Simulated scan of single mutants.
Amino acid sequence: MNVRADVVELLHAGYSDRAIARQLGVDVKATVAPARLALGLPKAKSGKKAAATAEDLFWRRVQPTDDGHMTWDGYHTKDGVPGLKHGGRFHTANRLAYRIAKGRDPEGYALPSCGRDDCVKPGHHTDRADRQAEKRVDALYAGIFGPDA
């Protein structure tokens, strides 16, 4: 049997037969079920799929806006801090966005640097080290070109 590569990829990712058929626009009985059988894969587990990482869960909770930012559609603490629990730990949305963009945890707080306080889009945040570097550049720039430059 010739099995489609896109079906194989989704089967190995753990998707159910119906989810694969819906996503690819194919028939369950004619395409997906025979592929699962040919590959010797067990039936997919039913129910909600747990997020592998906090970053995966982050992407389920953000909503893009028309102006290129993202807002948080998930839990907020009583102080209004957007975040989520994963692996028994609380992660703020800003910290996760910084980690996704930079590949490391921020030093100190991760704060939006795009001008929107509610933005959680990765790449729109700075940490303490980034803010200190910006201050040094601003001071150097002012020293070279004068305070009014």
Rank of each mutant, 00 (worst) to 15 (best):
V8C: 15
G115T: 08
I100H: 06
Y15D: 04
R99N: 02
Q23P: 01
R116S: 02
V120T: 06
R18T: 07
G103W: 12
K49L: 02
D6W: 00
R60V: 03
L41A: 15
P122N: 06
A142K: 15
P112L: 06
A35Q: 09
P147G: 03
D118I: 02
D117G: 02
T31P: 09
A13W: 04
A5M: 08
Q23T: 03
P34Y: 08
A13N: 07
H12P: 07
W59I: 07
W59H: 11
E107I: 12
S113T: 01
H91K: 06
V32Y: 00
E134D: 01
K48T: 04
K135D: 08
R131I: 02
P122R: 03
S16P: 00
L96R: 08
L37W: 03
G25N: 04
T53M: 15
T65P: 06
R116I: 11
S16T: 12
D17L: 09
R128T: 06
A13D: 11
D56W: 13
K102A: 14
D66H: 05
T65W: 05
F90A: 06
P122I: 08
D117A: 09
R89G: 03
L111T: 11
D56T: 07
A93G: 07
L57Y: 11
V32W: 03
V32R: 02
G87Y: 13
R36C: 08
L96E: 08
P122D: 04
V62A: 07
D56G: 10
L41Y: 05
Y109N: 14
Y141G: 13
F145G: 14
V3A: 03
Q132N: 14
E9K: 04
K135P: 01
R60N: 10
W72S: 05
R104N: 05
E134V: 00
R18E: 10
E107D: 07
P106N: 02
G87R: 14
V62G: 06
V81N: 14
G88M: 13
H91D: 03
L140F: 11
D138E: 14
P112K: 13
E9H: 07
K102S: 07
G88T: 12
Y109K: 13
E134F: 00
P147W: 02
L37D: 00
V62W: 14
V120E: 06
G83Y: 00
D79A: 13
A97S: 05
Q132V: 12
R36V: 01
R99K: 11
T92S: 15
L39N: 04
R36Q: 08
V120Y: 10
C119I: 15
V8M: 12
F90L: 12
L11M: 14
A133V: 02
R60M: 13
F145Y: 15
L10M: 09
H76E: 14
D127F: 00
H76P: 09
P112W: 11
